[in-house]
Every structure is written in structure tokens, then in C-alpha cells.
Design a binder for these strands. Structure first.
Lengths: 221, 221
DNA sequence: CCTAATTAGATACGATCGTATCCTAAGCTC
DNA sequence: GAGCTTAGGATACGATCGTATCTAATTAGG
């Protein structure tokens, strides 16, 4: 805000950092991620690029920092709607909203850099992608306690809803809508975890294949 | 190969194009995708960047063209091993090999650009990502005929193996190995399509949810 | 064959990136 | 408060990208 164009005051530390993040955020809103340039952010903050690079290594890191500052976006509570279906739908819907809030242009810009630039961006991974396995595990445990889900669901099955959600996100470059979300839940997830469903009590599973699963790969035993 | 450094002969049309693609390929092999520069390719081909840009709009397009020229990489036959499990595993393993052949550095470089740059790269989509729904549908139809799979499998379930495969690819920046592939098949896919499995004959499916599926969303009726 | 239409190849340009250098304002130490 | 240390701000640099311009080699047409 205060520009000090005359140039007497020189901001430092936290004040400067905040100004930079605000500038980055404003720039993100006004031109979007792809067109966001370090120069523009620096100008808007009334300083120069070097100052930015002293704090963040590159554009995505700056943008992520700005997002952290300006979006609630946190994990939030684990939904507890009373039914397994309701809980899972709630998780996916919330994620969908979170992404919408960030804006797909930014989401895909960041994901793109994540994929391109080697391991540099564990950050993006955790910030933008992490709908944790813990959430699904918790929900499934509750459901099992209610008798809604069979015990011993493999981890891969437990994370199916979030994995498929993410797949849609990547594959079609567009956050999954309500219909897709319901398909994922009703056609894939629920049938697999239903009490009368396969693979739990050695019922169906006609393919010994990879042998038994290690215990730590199963949830809610 | 022939450099014509003396500069009497000036290549044109197809000959020049081939030389450029060979140069791009060689460069890709020697420095990788991230470090591949248009200048280097032009130099290697004994010409200048402008000539490249006259044929391809940007780096990814050039690289994809080079890959097309230098890799068999085509869809290949639809596997027919005699069992559903064998067929699906074959599809996923083959895809894994294809990706390994391209090299993950290149794969992720291209995918990254695909995600970042708006709709420009429908190309990448089809070249690198498309393990079609047709393949899975065919395999499932054969399996159903053998009595190995229930009829009326929803499309979303049919494409589950390839979708999950792709998800792993994106999520962990590394092509799924044998163990993951088998998990996908044995823990998720087969239980869902088994003859005694849910949702086919109105058996389990305790959640009316989104109502009945449209017919065109089901395979092998 | 000679002329006319192409288009290869060289070069230069402006935009960005991320880095390096230098100067000096802010703030800390005594 | 004088001096020392830290770090902000300006500027320049080299690498690339993708574009534009110009010339001269090749090919095609008459």
C-alpha cells in the first residue's frame, strides 16, 4: 500500500515480506498465474526482483507463499455426516471447492511446474494435492463401526475416491463436477467397501495373484 | 549426418525436416528434455532456430515429432492372454515399458507443459496419455463372453486400471512398478467386475444415489 | 534457359528468467 | 550517537524463448 516513492523509508523483514506477498497475490488475481511476472510483482511492491529472489527461489514458490497467506485453504475438519457416502462426498466436494477457490489456471500452472521441474517442488505436492489418506482412513473406520463398511479395506481401496478425483483433475484439466464425484463414490468406492463386498472375508477374490496383503496395507481391521 | 559445413548445399523440405528431427532426437538422448534447447538442436542440424520454428510451434511439439519418428510406441495389439487378469496386466505392463522407453524425464517434461499451457497441447494428451477406453472395453467384452466378468460394467469401472495407472504416474512422478500394477488389478479392478460382484444384477448397491446409469455408460451388455 | 516464387539461414529484437555486483539505508552494538 | 553489520534496491548480465527481417540459394514456370 504505502509506496514511499520518494524513497526515504526502506521496508525490511516481515513488513517487506508481507508487501511482496500482497503484491504477488494482487498480481495473481489481476493477470493470472501464467502471465504473472516477477518484474510486475516487484514493481507493484515498489521494489526490485532481486529482493524477491532473496526470499523465494522462483515463481511457483512465491505464488504458493502468497496463496498460503491469502487463502484459508487448510485441511479443515474431517466430515462426519452420519453416513459413509455422505462423508466421502463431502470430502470430494470440499476439495472441489478449494480448487475452484484457487482457480484452475493457477492450479494447473503450479501442477505443470511440479511435473516438469524434478523434485524441487515437494511443496506443490503437499499444498495443492494432499488430500490425505488419514482422512479416508478415519471416515472408513467410523463407517466400519456403524457396520456400513467391511473391515480390512486395503489402503489402495481406501484412497480410491481421492485418487480418482485427482486423476480427473490431471487428465481433463478441469476439476471434477458433482456428477463425476457421485460416479466415483457410487460406482467404484461404495461397492468395494460394502459389507457384503468382495475380498474382505476371503469371499470372492478368485485371483491369488500377489499373495496376501501385508497388514499395514489394510485399514480398519 | 551430412553437415555441409562448407555451405554449398542447402537442404529443403523433407530432407531438412528429417535432419531437424534427427538432431532433436539426438539432443534429447544426450542432454534430456529439460536441458534441450532450440539453439542446440539447430546447431546440431547445421541450421538456425528460425528454421525450426517454421515447422513446429515450440519445444514440446518438436520433441513429440521427434519421438513419433524415432519410437515405435504405437498402440500395439490388444492383448489376448486368455484371462481377464492376464490381459489387463499386459496392458498396464506394456504401457509401463512404453513410458520407460521414452524416459521419465521427457515424459514429465511434456506432461508438465501440457498442464501448464492451456489447450495448446491436445497433442501430448493423445501421444503420451492415451491408453484408450476401447482397449479395456474389448478386453472386458472378451472376458464377459468367457464368463469371467459380469455384464454391464460401467465405463468408469472399465477404465479403472488405466486411470489408476495414470494417477500413479502423475502423483508420484514415477511410472508404476509391477507391484502397484498388480494391486490395481487384484484389489480394485477384478473385485469390481467379477461375476459375483456388486452393482451388476441389482445385487448390492445400497445407494440409489445418482439414479440408474445411462446405457451408453455401460460396457458389454 | 531465364525469370519468378519459395524458403533456408543469419541476425537482431524484446520479454523473462535467475544470478551477480555494487551502493547505501536501517538497525544493532557499544 | 558513532561505527559496524545486515539486507534493500538498482542495475547489468547471460541464457532462452518465440518473432521479425533480410539475403541469397533452390526450385518451379514459362
Amino acid at each position: 500500500m504505502a509506496q514511499h516513492t520518494g524513497g526515504q523509508t526502506r521496508r525490511r523483514g516481515a513488513a517487506l515480506e508481507a508487501a511482496l506477498l500482497d503484491a504477488a497475490w494482487a498480481e495473481l488475481q489481476s493477470v493470472g498465474y501464467a502471465a504473472l511476472t516477477m518484474e510486475a510483482v516487484a514493481d507493484r511492491a515498489g521494489t526490485s526482483r532481486a529482493v524477491i529472489y532473496r526470499r523465494w527461489r522462483n515463481r511457483p514458490e512465491l505464488v504458493i507463499a502468497a496463496m498460503r497467506r491469502h487463502l484459508p485453504m487448510l485441511s479443515g475438519e474431517i466430515p462426519d455426516t452420519g453416513s459413509l457416502r455422505g462423508d466421502v462426498l463431502a470430502v470430494l466436494r470440499r476439495e472441489s471447492q478449494r480448487l475452484a477457490q484457487v482457480g484452475s489456471e493457477t492450479v494447473y500452472g503450479l501442477l505443470g511446474e511440479y511435473l516438469s521441474n524434478a523434485g524441487t517442488f515437494g511443496r506443490v505436492q503437499d499444498e495443492v494435492l494432499h488430500i490425505g489418506a488419514e482422512v479416508m482412513t478415519t471416515i472408513l473406520n467410523r463407517a466400519a463401526a456403524r457396520g456400513e463398511a467391511r473391515p480390512g479395506v486395503p489402503l489402495r481401496v481406501a484412497t480410491l475416491p481421492t485418487d480418482l478425483f485427482r486423476h480427473e483433475l490431471f487428465r481433463y484439466r478441469t476439476p471434477p463436477g458433482e456428477q463425476v464425484i457421485e460416479e466415483i463414490v457410487d460406482e467404484v468406492f461404495l461397492p468395494l467397501v460394502a459389507v457384503s463386498a468382495p475380498a474382505g472375508g476371503g469371499d470372492v477374490r478368485p485371483y491369488p495373484g500377489a499373495g496376501g496383503l501385508a497388514d499395514d496395507q489394510r485399514v480398519n481391521r
